[in-house]
Each structure stands twice: as C-alpha cells, then as structure tokens.
Design a protein around this nucleic acid. Structure first.
Lengths: 341, 341
DNA sequence: AATTTTTTGATTTACGTACATCAGATTTGG
DNA sequence: CCAAATCTGATGTACGTAAATCAAAAAATT
C-alpha cells in the first residue's frame, strides 16, 4: 500500500489538517512545522493520489484548442481528433473548447490568447504562427499559470511548456534522403512546394531539405520554392506552370498541405513525365495517390497522437506532474505503399 | 455534470442499493426491475466513474508479463520498459510482475500460463511462441476471465484480446520496397537473415519481403534464408560465409535480432563490397551503424509504446471498457540517418 | 390466509483527498 | 505577564462509487 496523508501526519507528528495545509500550500503553518512535514513527505515517498484528489475537488480541466480555419485535410483531421477527445471528455475530466482563427494571422491568435487571460483555463494548445506578438501573448498566459502547448508548429523562444509536433528539420532531411535515393542515378531538377514561408514548420522543412540535398545529392538542382498557401486550386495552377516551364524536373517535395491540387497535376502529367514525389500528411487524397504510385512516399504526423498528447501534457503540467517524454514524442511517420495503416 | 448513480436511482424510481446491485451484477433483483434500471442507465447516458470506483474498491490491477530470456538488445529494451512501468505502478494502480521463460520454448510458456490460472491476475501480456499448446493455454486463461495481450509476436487463432505489435507482413513488404528502390538500377542477389523460422513474426516478415520482391523487383534474386538464431556470434560467421560464397550479393535484409554480428561482417567487408542493408530494431548498435552508413534503413517497433499500450489494454479489457484503437496501433517506424530520435 | 422466499429500501462505512470550521494551544508584541 | 495574533488539532462534510447490513415490502408457495 502506498502511503497516504495519514501516514505523513503520523510520521511528522502533526495533525491531518496541518499536512493538508502544507500539501495545498494554505497559510497558517510555521516554517519549522512546514519543513518537518515536507521532510516526512520525502522520507516516506508520498505522492498525492491524483484520482482521489480530483474526485474530492470535482475537478475538471478546462482546455482550449486554438486552431486555424484552414481548408485542408490535415487541419480537418486535427479538428476531428479534438472532437473525438471532446466525446471522451467525461471520463478524462476535461472540458474542451475550440477557438477557430483565420490562418496565417498572428493578430487573430493574439486576440484569442488575450481573451483567455481572464478565463484562465487549465491549458491552451495552439497551432502557433511564428511572430513576436504571439510569443509575448503565450508568455503572458504561461505567467498567468496556464499550461501552454504548441501544436504542429512550434514557437521557439517562447515559454510554452511543450511542443506536440514533429521535428520539422529532420522531416525535411528525411524527405531529401528518400527523394535522393529513390531518384538514384538520374539527373535533373527538383521542385519544392510549400504552403507559406511565414509558418515556422514549413520554413524548417525546407531548411532541412535544402541542406541535405546540398550535402548528399548535389547532382540535383533545386528550383525556387513555390508557395501554394495550402490551397489546392492555387497549387494545381502553380505546379502545372512549374512543370511546363521546367522540363528537367524529375522530383517534387511537397512540404505543406493542399496536395489535392498537386495530385491533379501529377495525374495530368502522368504519361509523359516520370516524377518521383515525396509529400507530407496522410489524407484520403494522398493515400490513394500513394497507392496509385503517383506519390512515392508520404511523411506524416499523426494528428490523433498529437491531440491526445497535447491533452495529457496540458493536464500533467496543470498539476505540476511529470510526463513520460518518450510517450509524448511525436514521431515522423514514413508511409510507403506497403505500410499504410 | 455527468450523471451519477443517484440520478439513475431517481430516474428508474428505485433505490441506490438496487442500482448498485444492477451495476455490479449482484443477485437479488427481479428481471423487470433490472431492465428498468438498465433502461434508465441508457436513457440518461450514465457511465461509471472508473476513478471513483477504483478508489472505493482500493483496486489494483495485478498484471503479468511473460518475456523470453533472449540475449538481444530488443528484448532487453522491452524488459527495461516493463521495469519503468513498474516504477510508475503506484499512480497507475498496477502491480506488475515479470516471468522470464527460455526463448523458443512453447512448453515453458504453457507452464507459466497454467501457473497463472489459479492466481488469476487482471491481465497477462506474453511474447507468444506460435504453437497449438500455447494457443490452448491462452484460451483457457481468457475463459477464466483474464485479459490476455500478445506482445511483439501474435498468436492468431487464439482468443487473446489484443495484439500489441507491428504488422509483420507489412514490415517485410516495406523492407523489400526500400531495398528495391535504394538498389535502383543495380542487379544482383539479395540475402535474408532471420532469427528463427519457428517464430511467427520472423516468418511473416520473410513472407512479406519475398512476396514484394517477386512482384516488384524480380531483377534481384533471393538467396536461401540464413537463420542466425538472434545470436551475434553465429550471425557473424554465417554472413561472412554467405558474402564470400556469393560475390553477387548487393543487398541484405536482416529481419531478426543479433545485428551486432551482422554489423561486424559489414565493417570487415566494407572497402570491397558495396552493400545496401535494411535491418530491424533500433538498438545502440544498429543506430551507430545507420549513422556510419553501414545500414541504410532500420525498421523498428517502439518497445516503450508496446509495453504501455499492453498495460492500457489489459486494464481496459479487465474492466470491460473500450480502447482507442488508433492509440493502440503499434506503428512500424522507419529510421533513416536523418530522422533518428 | 399464513408462511416462506425473494426483492427492494434505507442506512452506514469506506476509499484518499480537499476544504471549512471552531476550539485550543503556542507564540509574539507590548 | 497579559492580550492579541498566529499556529495547530479535532472534527465533519464532500466527491462518486462499492459493499455490507438489516428492516420492510412484495411476491410466491403452501
């Protein structure tokens, strides 16, 4: 049996009430007594039974997700996973709310974050846009005692407690590695399609990709980045233009969303061009393109894992508890035709 | 506020005691009343508060892991993860015990399983050896109300509740896909190194690998499988022999353990031979070999995730609760030099 | 209708913690 | 040294469920 508050009281030679005052940092305990109790806690290795404590407090964790209203499958997937988490919220003692903000708009995120300052939820998870004012707003929330987790795209330099997303530099390098080796002895140009260079995760992917290509596969030259704003229509137009303008393109790295447009272009160019393609995010569209051989590999981050991890971390941080780092590491999944889930 | 037992009692027009009798399937309730209560439960959507229930019952989940005493890094990793789970057992209300049995020995597993029949733990997780008598022993345990999870290697046809491990056929196919594409335009022979064809996971990996090679890359011929019994020394000898006997070998798929021996061989052959290698299980040895370019890709199953998943599933099944399937899916990780964790 | 059996209700204690109240003890300041 | 302020103890209630006891009611049996 693990020790209880009663055991601390006995060990420290004080009453239950005093132990309670120390544990819940309530006033009315002399320094000396407080130390004595803390000593006993350490000695017998007491850890608060969170389940019982939450029961006694009728505690619920009010959590907020701030998500961009992007019209792409990946963000829809994230939203879907949050909704499923809402469905489970009873058993997990969470009360989850979603705030949708326009994409690529720092001020909207800032407004949302500031609106939360008074509400003081237990935790906030946000898909961060990389801007100083967002950083400041996040820091303010952290200072106010809210646990903050960045989702999908990080906000380095801020005081956020945790980042639930993949290492995007490694993702870019991995894409380069796959593309380079799949292309093998061929020679030609490689095109890169991004959403926006304003988003940190896209910048990082490009950075990793370009670095490894230069290091390991100098025989392929990179075309200037095409920014499709994660918009399928725009992507389709841009990729068509790129392909017709550059006949030597033999590989494409799509590091953002809006792959529906890319796939359309690939289909149209199919008989004439032999393209090796690495894309991000497993969606219904990219999945079937992978199966059909239009795409050669998909790099993915599991939205479900990210959302569940963010919730676990927000809860743990709200209670000042430790997490299991390995469990919360978001992995970069590599999908080929043959290991689709 | 979610409904409580009191709400059911009120809704069904019965007393708390009757609700309790129905909920915990205690005798002394007429069929008609029982139905009335169950109706109310459904109507108002009551779900038992597991935390409160466990508190009231002072419940602990006695769990048992049956692991083979294999001298390879992967199994050591599994054991290590179980130990870490033991360290967390206080907060998770688990009491975990490990039984070590000789590897590749069905009768030892059967003996262990039968020994547990009287003890009746809440759950048992085992690395199954694929044999009819093991299947029977597992089915007996399931019949006795113990939740059983197979770990790493499955036991199809048995009544185990869950399998916490990767899809090994897909793993083999993925290995073939990577090896085939990495080899590109080259021609030659491919060697396959396994631990033992007695273990289901190894058989399945081979099956997937051979099938995809035949389908997609007929230009490479497969050498007969080499069985290294997951023993580094033996593997080293066997691979050396294979390489010197077959000068046309250009690729190796190592689907089992004992890769320390393989890596030694690769190092020795390095200047003369240009080999493309895909191996399983990320360990200290395979990791550094990947970094050094001796191995081109590593397929991995995360032992930590497997163990934590097995525990979650055993607990849930013991309470007759649902799991989140996506959360419990064990992914096949593909590691290249650039996405190592 | 009387008796036995079965079913139901009312009540209590417990799990480990939180939180509040009030009385009593100890310390502090003057 | 006494009053005031501060600290500590004792006690009770609550959270949602489990489990037990005993009395009362209803049903089934004779």
């Amino acid at each position: 049996m693990r020790p209880t508050v009663h055991d601390i009281a006995a060990a420290a030679g004080v009453s239950l009430a005093t132990v309670d005052r120390v544990l819940n940092q309530r006033p009315g305990v002399r320094q000396a007594t407080r130390r004595k109790v803390e000593e006993a806690i350490r000695e017998i290795g007491y850890v608060r039974d969170v389940a019982a404590a939450n029961l006694a407090k009728s505690r619920v964790y009010p959590l907020v997700f701030i998500l961009p209203t992007s019209d792409n499958s990946f963000m829809h997937g994230v939203l879907e996973e949050v909704k499923q988490a809402v469905a489970r919220s009873g058993g997990e003692r969470t009360a989850i709310r979603v705030i949708e903000v326009p994409a690529f708009d720092p001020s909207a995120i800032v407004a949302a974050l500031q609106g939360l300052a008074s509400e003081k939820p237990a935790g906030v998870a946000l898909v961060a846009t990389d801007a100083p004012e967002v950083r400041a707003a996040v820091d303010d929330l952290v200072a106010a005692g809210v646990s903050v987790v960045t989702l999908v795209s990080d906000l380095t330099g801020s005081r956020r407690h945790h980042y639930a997303g993949v290492d995007n530099i490694a993702a870019g390098r991995t894409a380069a590695h796959l593309l380079g080796r799949f292309l093998g002895a061929k020679e030609g140009e490689v095109a890169v399609l991004a959403g926006s260079m304003l988003v940190r995760d896209h910048r990082e992917r490009l950075e990793g990709f370009a670095a490894l290509m230069a290091e390991q596969f100098p025989q392929f030259s990179l075309l200037p980045v095409v920014e499709g704003r994660d918009d399928p229509e725009l992507v389709n137009v841009l990729i068509n233009a790129t392909l017709s303008k550059n006949p030597r393109v033999i590989g494409i790295y799509s590091l953002g969303a809006g792959n529906r447009g890319l796939i359309k272009s690939l289909k149209e160019s199919r008989p004439q061009r032999d393209l090796t393609v690495v894309a991000h995010e497993l969606t219904a569209h990219t999945r079937s393109a992978l199966k059909d051989g239009l795409i050669d590999a998909i790099l993915n981050q599991d939205a479900g894992h990210e959302v569940r991890s963010a919730i676990r971390v927000m809860k743990a941080k709200a209670d000042g508890l430790a997490i299991i780092p390995a469990q919360e590491r978001i992995r970069l999944d590599i999908f080929l035709k043959d290991n689709l889930p």
